[in-house]
Amino acid sequence: MAVIVERPKLSILEKFYFPAIMKGLRITLGHAIRILRRKKKVTMQYPEEKWDNNLPEHYRGAPALVTDEHGRERCVSCQLCEFICPPRAITIIPEEIPPEDQWSKVEKRPREFEIDMIRCIYCGMCEEVCPEQAIFLRKDYAISGYTRDEMVHNKKKLYEIGGVREGLVNKWNTLK
């Protein structure tokens, strides 16, 4: 069913347009004067000024893997992030943890964990979906490289960015 939206009835003055145009010009001029008189500052001069120290808590930068306070890699390669990732930036190759390993009771870990930062859209779905609190979006935002390969973060690089994160739920350590 088509919805018919009634056009507003314009008064004669409004039909004349001129007052509205003048009003518009006054508004834009007002903004211009305000910024010319340095009453307001919006833009930051990026490479010289940075807001790294003022990044909000919820800022979403490069995704990275974290280890816990015992040095265990938290990722168990359940591949949920790979599944949820909208641009399919994540590739995981899982492997079984060998029995002689300290954390063999966890059974599974990623052999390779790659995030293609050319594809990544910083949506944070991977962090949201992760059942192990293993992937977090850090505050790194200036990701650059000379080649496409350089833009693919491998497992080593991801742990380097992520570092250690303490105070997370540690179900493997206590119950297993």
Binding site: C78, E107, K108, P131
Partner: peptide, 11 residues
């Protein structure tokens, strides 16, 4: 039942 769906192949 353990809460290990993330590593369980049956998941």
């Amino acid at each position: 039942h353990p809460l290990d769906c993330p590593i369980c192949d049956q998941a």
